[in-house]
Design a protein around this nucleic acid. Structure first.
Length: 131
DNA sequence: AGAGTGACTGCAG
DNA sequence: ACTGCAGCCACTC
């Protein structure tokens, strides 16, 4: 059967191009709520052959998990920008976060709908923060 | 066995 | 917005 490890891979692979998801969301999607750190560990150990869109996974607040300026940070930022996802004031706008159902649709599971937990408002049509 | 360490998170100050 | 802190849990000394 599917191992937690495989479910994490599947969840990451299910993130649509141009979208992102948090470590916690991936963990929850893989049936491991509360284990965001473990997801980070799995991705760090993931072989390049897996060709996972690891760059679409970031912190819940929109910040990349790597230290700003580090090689890994820049690499991830480049990959995101290549898909049209740009950092605004150092973070990815909530509007880019994939929604629960977007991931479910790719995975299979109607599963529930009960826990529509983090349903981020998908607009973000706000004024340009003065200056 | 026990302490330290994160590709994390949410809450508190 | 930033800093700390408590939970979190696998893994490494």
């Amino acid at each position: 059967m599917t191992t937690p490890h495989e479910r994490v891979f599947a969840a990451v692979a299910a993130i649509p191009a141009g979208c992102v998801a948090s470590y916690g969301a991936i963990a929850a999607q893989a049936g491991l709520p509360g284990r965001a750190r473990w997801v980070g560990r799995v991705l760090a150990a993931a072989p390049a052959e897996a060709a996972l869109p690891w760059h679409r996974v970031l912190r819940a607040d929109g910040h990349l998990a790597f230290a700003p300026g580090s090689a890994a940070f820049e690499a991830q930022r480049r990959r995101l920008e290549a898909e049209g996802v740009e950092l605004v004031r150092g973070r990815v706008p909530r509007a880019h976060f994939a929604r629960r159902q977007d991931l479910d649709r790719w995975l299979w599971a109607p599963r529930d709908a009960a826990e529509t937990a983090a349903a981020p408002r998908a607009d973000a049509a706000r004024k340009p923060r003065r200056k």
